[in-house]
């Protein structure tokens, strides 16, 4: 079976279990440079999928397209059956209005490599800002939920602190709490430990392990932490040159990959 066939077979298998995310013929170009070309894959609802591969292989672009931080050049993305940015209408590709995009986007949360906490707000304010102004929650309700999330990420007593008073690892845990405060169905984790000192990585990964174990949130993960990928993922996709070259369960991917390029990549990073 060729790689493409493997991919399609796996995608078809996933689509049977109600797909949370579908990429259909996705194309992304930056100027003349094509990052993703006719990319197709599905992520099942509640599934944890890790994207691995060398730099520039298009992994982060996939997350950014889902978060609508990049404009989709071609193809379609569906979230829980709803088109995200473009839909098919009478055989034509039609761009959706900003309001419609925002409705679907609310189901998705993202945690960034650089944390991006708002410097003009305390930790608590960072977390309650969007629930109040986007979801229309009352201040009390938002604070209650934020406190619960801060406890969950081990920072229950740091609500009044300013982001600059926290270590990188603590800031990232606040960023995770902030994304979760929007009650997303899907969470995108973009190299969330890459900017951290090695000693601080463990705490952040433990929070995410706990999240994976206690919720049914769909997770799409880009990481270089292969042990973490192996622990939490249901499926691992190996990317190279904007294409999925291998799609396998983590135990197979990390112990017995079939693709030569995957073997070479894993030898280099493990």
């Amino acid at each position: 079976m060729s790689t493409d066939e493997t991919t399609q077979a796996s995608a078809a298998q996933q689509s049977e279990a109600s797909p949370g995310i579908i990429f259909e013929g996705v194309v992304k170009r930056f100027g003349d440079h094509t990052v993703l070309n006719e990319l197709n894959f599905h992520v099942g609802k509640g599934e944890r999928v890790t994207l691995i591969g060398p730099s520039g292989s298009g992994k982060t672009t996939i997350l950014r397209l889902l978060m609508t931080l990049e404009h989709l050049t071609g193809g379609y993305i569906y979230v829980d059956g709803e088109p995200l940015t473009h839909k098919k209408e009478n055989g034509k590709r039609v761009e959706l209005r900003a309001k419609q995009v925002a409705q679907t986007r609310k189901r998705i949360g993202m945690v960034f490599q650089q944390f991006n906490l708002f410097p003009n707000m305390s930790v608590m304010e960072n977390i309650i800002e969007a629930p109040i102004h986007v979801l229309g929650k009352s201040k009390e309700e938002a604070r209650g939920r934020a406190q619960q999330l801060l406890d969950q990420v081990g920072l229950g007593d740091r609500g009044d602190a300013h982001p600059t008073q926290l270590s990188g690892g603590q800031q990232q845990r606040v960023a995770i709490a902030r994304a979760l405060a929007m009650d997303p169905e899907i969470i995108l984790l973009d190299e969330v430990t890459s900017a951290l000192d090695p000693e601080l990585v463990g705490d952040v990964l433990n929070v995410l392990r706990d999240l994976a174990a206690t919720t049914d949130i769909t997770m799409l993960i880009v990481t270089h932490e292969m042990q973490f990928a192996q622990d939490v993922s249901d499926r691992v996709l190996m990317f190279d040159g904007g294409k999925i070259i291998e799609d396998a369960k983590p135990d197979v991917m990390f112990s017995n990959p079939s693709n030569e390029r995957t073997k070479e990549f894993l030898r280099a990073v493990l």
């Binding site: 978060m67 986007r105 949360g109 960034f112 991006n116 708002f118 003009n120 986007v134």
Partner: peptide, 27 residues
Amino acid sequence: VPKGQWETTTALSMPWLTKMRRIIWPQ
């Protein structure tokens, strides 16, 4: 204002006015 701040407001689905008034403008 760092690009990451703008992107985070998008990731949190903030409407334009909220994003400008609460996050971007103070910075």
